[in-house]
Design a protein around this nucleic acid. Structure first.
Length: 254
DNA sequence: ATGGTTGCTTAGCAA
């Protein structure tokens, strides 16, 4: 079983690449982030033709997450669902082939100390509460997505340059560890070599210089982690015409 | 050096 996560940075802009990549990799489940469309404008027909069901939590212009799956997603739940005033579409959950799957788009946080940064910290706390209170963490569960956090020094090409950034600030790394303390394991942290990145800024030739960060993660409960045989980043998807700034991350399970 | 690139929406924001 092959499960992937990919921040596509607009599903409309990325649809031709996404369809070609699905054909190439044949993943069973794909967690998508940054759709930038309402559910009504989501390309259900094109993905169905490619063999995928889709559970979508969309939003106009910003954010938006989905779970694509060859099997029909069950028990779909949209949003963090704890605050009626929070309309940001950043989380969707569904059960696929007996695994509870989450696709998450953690807030970027802008700059340390900003309102958006406080929202990011609060959102991570709320996500942890949701997992602890409402999910059975003894069952196979996979939380995948763009966390906008590089967890370790080995996940940043130039750590000193990024120390003050919301993507690598020590507080962010601590918040990430507290999320793991729910009972999740970062599959990339153990299966990927140091210096494996999933995001490179569009600016300043970051990708050719490999000035990247590992921001996209698959977090699994212990029994599911023991079934993981390999994790890889599909670096080729950051190359060529009109790439997303993120590359897909894939994990294989037996 | 507060730059630079992309996408959504069409001037400015978010990432």
């Amino acid at each position: 079983m092959l499960i992937a996560t990919w921040n596509v940075n607009s599903i409309r802009a990325r649809l031709p690449r996404l369809l070609a990549w699905l054909q190439k990799r044949q993943p069973d489940v794909v967690c998508l982030q940054e759709l930038k469309v309402e559910e009504a404008a989501f390309p259900f027909a094109e993905l169905a033709a490619a063999g995928y069901h889709a559970a979508v939590c969309g939003q106009k212009t910003w954010h938006g997450v989905a779970i694509l799956a060859r099997s029909e997603p069950r028990a779909v739940r949209r949003g963090l669902d704890d605050d009626p005033h929070d309309s940001q579409a950043r989380l969707i959950a569904a059960t696929v082939d007996g695994i509870r799957i989450f696709s998450a788009y953690v807030p970027n946080g802008s700059t340390v100390g900003s309102d958006k940064y406080l929202y990011k910290r609060g959102w991570l706390t709320r996500l942890g509460r949701r997992l602890r209170l409402q999910e059975d963490l003894g069952q196979p569960l996979l939380l995948a997505g763009d966390f906008n956090i590089a967890p370790q020094e080995r996940d940043v090409h130039n750590p000193r340059q990024w120390e003050d950034s919301v993507l690598y600030h020590p507080q962010m790394r601590q918040d990430f560890q507290e999320l793991l303390a729910c009972g999740l394991i970062d599959l990339g942290g153990s299966h990927l070599p140091a210096g494996t990145y999933s995001w490179w800024d569009y600016r300043q030739l970051s990708f050719p210089r490999n000035d990247g960060l590992r921001l996209d993660h698959l977090l699994a409960t212990p029994m599911l982690t023991s079934r993981c045989t390999e994790v890889l980043v599909d670096r080729d998807e950051r190359k060529g015409d009109t790439p997303s700034d993120h590359a897909p991350v894939l994990a294989r399970f037996f």
